[in-house]
């Protein structure tokens, strides 16, 4: 589905355009607004809004191109597997297969699918675990990991092998997911952003993030090959690989 989801240059450029507009115009405006009007809550609001903005281009592009039934089904199935997987391992905190599945989705079906599977998983799983101020952060983190996995794979930097995926998964979980989520929770809790506080948050979250990263590596180590095989087979069955 790579050619479906990504390689269409026009689409890529439209997304770039929207993204550029956001970065150049809307995000600075938000920051200005926050700094001048919001005092204590500015960090939280600015960050949350930026997170939501970054998700918008994906949403718009996806909606604009009128996706087919099979695109919808594949994203829905993978998200549902990730959500069910998160639920199935409910007894072990942080030890979840979600990031692993999102990465595999990104590698097999492209960056856009990776992002959507991730964001959708973050959103829907909170229908079962409870929505909260953390929802946009989780959506963004899962989504962006899937997106990066897809991009790196497309550029040939990330290979489909077990080890490259494991290494990428571990790093992405620890730094991207852990890093952003911890920042988010710091901003939810406190008013003032300060480096020592951030450092303290990272220190206190260290083991959680390590467990999470180990879980991702573990799941990728065992799941990656069979999952990719299955997805490749499905691509043929859905007629996605036909010229």
């Amino acid at each position: 589905m790579q050619h479906q989801f990504l390689s269409d240059r026009k689409r890529l450029s439209r997304r770039t355009l929207v993204a550029a507009l956001l970065i150049v115009l809307v995000i600075p405006l938000t920051i200005l607004f926050g700094v001048y009007f919001l005092d204590d809550r500015k960090y939280y609001f600015i960050s949350m809004l930026i997170i939501i903005y970054t998700m918008l281009p994906f949403v718009m592009v996806f909606e604009k191109r009128k996706p087919q039934a099979r695109d919808l089904v594949i994203i829905a199935v993978l998200s549902a597997i990730a959500v069910a997987g998160r639920a199935a391992f409910f007894m072990v905190p942080q030890f979840k297969p979600v990031v692993a599945i999102v990465i595999i989705a990104g590698v097999c079906f492209g960056a856009e699918a990776g992002f959507l599977v991730g964001a959708m998983t973050g959103f829907v799983s909170n229908f079962f675990f409870g929505q909260g101020p953390w929802t946009p952060w989780q959506m963004f983190c899962f989504g962006i990991i899937g997106f990066i996995a897809g991009i790196l794979f497309q550029k040939g930097i990330l290979k489909k092998g077990k080890w490259p995926l494991c290494i990428f998964g571990g790093l992405a979980t620890f730094f991207i997911y852990g890093g952003i989520i911890d920042l988010g929770s710091l901003l939810i809790f406190t008013s003032d952003f300060s480096w020592p506080a951030l450092l303290a948050t990272y220190v206190s979250g260290f083991w959680f993030n390590i467990v999470h990263a180990v879980a991702t590596v573990f799941f990728l180590f065992i799941l990656a090959r069979p999952m990719i095989e299955k997805l490749d087979r499905i691509k043929i069955k859905y007629g996605l690989l036909e010229p």
Binding site: V59, F62, E63, L72, V73, I75, A76, S79, A80, V83, L116, M120, F123, V124
Partner: peptide
């Protein structure tokens, strides 16, 4: 995306 949500 709403339909995907409903499907999930």
């Amino acid at each position: 995306l709403s339909l995907i949500l409903s499907m999930v």
